[in-house]
Simulated assay, not measured.
Amino acid sequence: MADGTRPVAEVRREDWEAGGFALYVHWPFCAAKCPYCDFNSHVAQRIDQGRWARAYEAEIARAATEVPGRVLRSIFLGGGTPSLMEPETVAAVIGAARAAWGFANDIEITMEANPTSVEAGRFRGYRDAGVNRLSLGVQALDDRDLRALGRMHSAEEAVAAFGIARDTFERVSLDLIYARQGQTPEAWEAELGAALRLAAGHLSLYQLTIEEGTAFGDRFAAGKLRDLPDEDRAADLWDVTQRLTEAAGLPAYEVSNHAAPGQESRHNLVYWRGGDWVGVGPGAHGRLTLGGARTGIETERAPGLWLARVEGEGSGESGREWLTEVEAAEERLMMGLRLAEGVELARLWALPDLGQRAKALAGMRLVVVEDGRLRTTASGRPVLNAVLRDLLA
């Protein structure tokens, strides 16, 4: 609730276990700010890595006092550009998490990286620190488009970086942005085919979105960002994406994520399945079930202020919000319908009119209800936002 008061109705405290428990650590620094990026990232000339490591350790230890005795399914080091962290900093974070909670036997520990920050020895350092999965932000395999996206690497460097990552880590994911300026379905088919031939087990494929507060957002508002795909071309690009990934054995298990069986991102599944996670670092968000209530936790966004709050006040948090049963159910629906597997209807009991609304959409072949689950169809997934508007009307 917006006023921060405790709701009368509380979420069943065991519900989060359907998704599991995870830790997200935000590294806020980048070598340069990309024009499309609205993440909390900053360019800094000098970073005291030891100081940041101690702050992360303190925040993880503090979180463990609120949710002790849990088992971590995953750790995700996101940003920013976490591959600018020293391996010793990464080791300190993972060590703090291990001291705070138990680790699942198959824990997934992911680090995001940019091709420009790839170096074989450094990657071995991350692997030795405990990282076992890398998410490589290639974004494009076309040099002209890489320059337009503000990326600092070439397509050749991206392919070389992927080879180093694949030789170093157990699992590697490749990120690409499509629906770029002037991009045709034929060009995207060739580019995506090249990415699939790299033999990644997981691909994150995002359509370019223009966000307010970014350089692209400013250019778009001024009419200077031309030849973005219209609705029909965007639909054609979507169709190419689904066709090629399915043929390669990497179907969409989520709207923008594709994987071979067993290669799905365990961390993101915690989010989409409505699990609990601790968010540590500037601008990180968390979701924890505390006292039976689903609780949203926010942190200070500015890196310097977050660091000062952790060191001076013992907490980098900036606010908490307790969700009502209805709000929590709505969140489970919005996140769960992103998955091909859908969401269990039993977890949506606080939305009494949902069944009738779902029946109407099922008649339009946009959703299906079977085996106690609600999920979108192949026709419903590309128009998910419209489906959700109808379900939550």
Rank of each mutant, 00 (worst) to 15 (best):
M1F: 11
A2S: 08
A2Q: 03
D3K: 10
G4C: 02
T5A: 15
V11Y: 07
E17I: 08
G19T: 07
W27Y: 12
W27C: 13
P28R: 15
C30T: 13
C30D: 05
A31V: 06
K33I: 08
C34P: 04
C34N: 11
D38W: 12
S41H: 13
H42C: 05
A44F: 13
I47C: 00
G50P: 00
Y56G: 11
E59H: 03
I60L: 13
A61N: 08
P68F: 08
R70I: 11
R73C: 13
G80D: 08
T81V: 08
L84V: 00
E86M: 10
T89G: 11
V90L: 14
A96D: 07
R98V: 02
R98Y: 11
R98N: 03
A99I: 07
G102N: 07
G102P: 07
D106Q: 08
I109T: 14
N114A: 01
T116N: 12
Y126N: 08
A129C: 13
G130P: 02
V131A: 06
L134H: 01
L136W: 11
D143M: 12
D143C: 02
R144Y: 06
G150C: 09
G150W: 15
M152Y: 00
E156M: 06
E157V: 02
V159A: 15
G163Y: 09
S173N: 11
L174S: 07
L174C: 06
L176F: 02
Y178V: 05
Y178A: 00
A179H: 08
R180F: 05
R180T: 00
Q183L: 05
E186S: 03
H202K: 09
Q207A: 14
L208Y: 06
L208V: 08
T209I: 08
F216H: 14
R219Q: 15
A221S: 11
A222K: 10
G223A: 02
D232W: 13
R233S: 06
D236V: 04
D236K: 12
L237P: 14
W238A: 01
V240K: 00
R243N: 09
E246G: 15
A248F: 10
E254K: 12
E254M: 05
N257F: 04
A260Q: 10
A260K: 15
G262M: 03
G262R: 07
Q263C: 03
Q263E: 08
E264A: 14
R266L: 02
N268Q: 05
L269N: 01
W272E: 04
G274L: 05
D276C: 05
W277F: 14
V278M: 04
V278Y: 10
V280A: 13
G281S: 02
G283Y: 09
T289V: 14
L290Y: 08
G291I: 08
A293F: 11
R294Y: 14
T299A: 04
A302Q: 15
G304R: 06
L305D: 15
E311A: 09
S318Q: 15
S318D: 11
R320G: 10
E321F: 14
L323C: 14
E325M: 01
M335C: 04
R338S: 02
L339K: 09
E341K: 05
L345P: 00
L345S: 10
R347V: 02
A350M: 13
L351T: 09
P352M: 00
K359I: 04
K359S: 15
G363D: 04
E370L: 04
D371Q: 11
T376M: 10
G380K: 11
A393V: 03
A393W: 14
A393E: 03
